[in-house]
Computed example of a mutant assay.
Amino acid sequence: MSEMVTDTSKATLLSTLPTRNIPASFLKQITNDFSPERELGKGAFGIVYKGILEDGEVIAVKKLVESSLVSHEKTFSNEVGNLMAVQHENIVKLVGFCHETHKKVVQHNGRYIIVEIAEVLLCYEYLPKGSLDKYIFAQSNRIDWDLRFKVIRGICNGLYFLHNKIHGPVVHMDLKPENILLDDNMVPKIADFGLSRLFGQEQTRMNTQNVVGSLGYMAPEYLYRGEISTQSDIYSLGLLIIEISTGEKNAPNFDDKCGRTFIEKVQQKWTDKYITSKYEPFGADCVQQIKMCVKIGLQCVEQERKNRPSIADIVDRLNRC
């Protein structure tokens, strides 16, 4: 294990050393004891805080919380284990982590007992623009098509790396606009690997009885049969591409966990004729790119996973456009 950061004089080492274990006391200090004023956002598995180092550098610190469905131990193992192997422009960088336990006396059923409390935290590069959902739906700060297309290509390049370029495919399992973060130059980075799974070299599919994910983005075979494969990500990616391309939001509910209502709405509305009439003033290239992206998105959300394109095919088509 790498050398531990023991005081604020070593704070600047965070940006130059490889991933390492950082004391909880240090992370409490740089987040002002996890002050609500430092909160950057909340997710299913934790709260993210802004950590300000001695030299002014900023990192994002995620404090994991227990979930009734997934323990923070499993979330920690997934994120650290899978992200330590990943270095890519379009994947958020893990810069440190903390896993400490301490004993505490608490009252339980009228008696005092000693329990073990875990401090489980993850530290990432700070991405000041926040998550993608802030830029593709709201009219006030909606990004233009050229930037949307670059974001789509960046996300696909990051997913291609996860599925093909490390020891075994990493399946993210929770692709959605809230889990795509943007840097100062609006470069997209895939984030939040709390549900991710790492496959062995010869493994292409696995099954689970613990189906956990985001409403509206789960592939049917995962939701109903617990099947996990790279095609699970392709389904979620399709919904993400459709949302970015159309600017329309998938509004799922407990009766539509796969987003089929949204998909059918897009199929009916976003025809080639509609796209041409809507975007013709912006030029032929724009029209063709939007048509292609909507088509790719709809192919990705085929109910039968074998009918979905691979990420390699998607990247190739985007690069040729």
Rank of each mutant, 00 (worst) to 15 (best):
I190R: 04
M173S: 03
Y160M: 08
N185D: 14
L195W: 04
N185I: 05
L181W: 08
V171M: 02
P177V: 09
I190C: 03
R197I: 06
K189R: 14
K165T: 08
E178Q: 15
R197L: 05
I190Q: 02
F193L: 10
S196I: 04
G194F: 06
V170W: 00
L182T: 11
N185L: 11
L182W: 09
P169C: 05
A191V: 10
L182C: 13
V170G: 00
N185F: 10
D174L: 06
I180V: 15
K189M: 10
H167V: 10
D192M: 08
H172I: 07
L175S: 08
F199W: 04
R197Q: 12
G200R: 11
L195I: 10
G194V: 10
K165R: 13
L198C: 02
E178H: 15
V171A: 01
H167K: 14
R197Y: 06
M173Q: 14
F199G: 05
D183L: 12
I180A: 07
D184E: 13
P177I: 13
E202N: 15
L195K: 05
R197E: 12
D192N: 13
D174F: 06
I180H: 09
H172D: 06
L195T: 03
P177W: 07
H172L: 09
E178T: 14
N164L: 04
H167A: 13
R197N: 06
E178F: 15
S196A: 14
I190G: 03
L198M: 06
I166E: 01
S196F: 00
G168M: 01
G194S: 12
K176C: 07
E202A: 14
